[in-house]
Write a protein that binds this DNA or RNA. Structure first.
Lengths: 189, 189
DNA sequence: CTCAATCCTGACGAAATAAGTCGGGATTAC
DNA sequence: GTAATCCCGACTTATTTCGTCAGGATTGAG
């Protein structure tokens, strides 16, 4: 229903990421037992099926799921859940990720950013980006499948130093690029 | 010109965050030498002044900057740059951060999320959120003010384990809530 | 006291993006 | 051959972002 709260929520992953991950978790649950149809998942997770159809395309193209067509067809994971890192999943859903102008890997020195040449803020954005990538990478689908309340271990999520204070949280929208293959944005005149 | 690339860029912080941080850096640079007017900064950073006027409101309300009205007025930092953590800045710009449905601090167990009760994906979103918060917290305004090319030390940005592979990056939009004071969602009846 | 430079306020509008819909085509089990 | 499924691409709608605008309130300088 769009259980999604109107828009008051804060940490807001675009629904592509959110639904897509849920879909993957669902697949992970049924892993081993044949393909699962989109309709099933849509109903079970209460998500619009036509929309999921869009999302799953990205997952298939990324080689994360395989599809079987025809009656009794559906989707299954192409690998074991424990071998699927969430960075790959999110990346697939949101696009191949072109680093933004001000946090592009190491491509620009920061030229385009603030014209005067002293664009040092990119340091910040890069740190954030790396932190996100690392958090995603260090989590596998398998971890998200442990059902119910009481998550067991917490296998060193990378925050090695203690409590994050839970502070005021920050609204984060992980949302890479669409399908654009990154590239030209760099060289093209 | 809104140096911002059309929209092909990837790591895209909402302009509120981006401009706002740049503005703060600018203030940090002139720290100590009286108030700086918005027009100056707008021109210097090539940003629309009327828009900055909006942003700076949030910064003022958050107590990060102080304003002097009248002729020769302007803004200055209310604290030393080294005492201003970027989490606070971004938080101020993007809103008080209401944790999203699926990553609200510890408020909901995950009830609203996927109705069946096995919403374990929130673990992922929480990790990401915490990672971001930590990355922001561990960076101060002062660090971003070191001008030019060649950032000195890299004072333990929290990524303690080595290279982040720079992998495919992920497009991240840090963008907390608007002005909504979060409020009721937690305690208020 | 007047004037110009500021900050301050709130409403408005245009453009981009996200979210979701729709109609139909291609495959395959039965 | 028929029903269930995946597959594809265009289309609509809703929300959000980004930015503008018009004016009011303060204050320093002459």
């Amino acid at each position: 229903m769009r259980t999604t709260v109107p828009s008051s929520g804060a940490l807001h992953f675009s629904t592509r990421g959110e639904y897509g991950v849920r879909l993957m978790v669902e697949l992970a649950r049924h892993h081993g037992g044949g393909p699962v149809s989109l309709s099933e998942m849509a109903e079970h997770e209460d998500l619009p099926r036509p929309y999921l159809e869009q999302l799953v395309v990205s997952l298939r193209e990324a080689g994360l799921v395989t599809s079987t067509r025809g009656a009794h067809g559906g989707y299954e994971l192409s690998r074991q859940p424990s071998l699927i890192g969430m960075a790959e999943v999110v990346t697939a859903l949101e696009g191949p990720i072109a680093p933004m102008i001000c946090a592009s890997g190491d491509t620009y020195p920061g030229e385009l950013c603030s014209r005067s040449g002293y664009c040092t803020v990119d340091l910040l954005w890069r740190r954030v980006r790396d932190a996100v990538v690392q958090a995603l990478e260090s989590t596998t689908l398998a971890e998200l499948t442990q059902s119910g309340p009481g998550h067991p271990s917490h296998p060193t999520p990378s925050g090695r130093d203690g409590r994050p204070d839970h502070h005021d949280a920050v609204l984060v929208t992980v949302r890479p690029l669409a399908d654009r293959p990154v590239k030209e944005s760099i060289v093209q005149p």
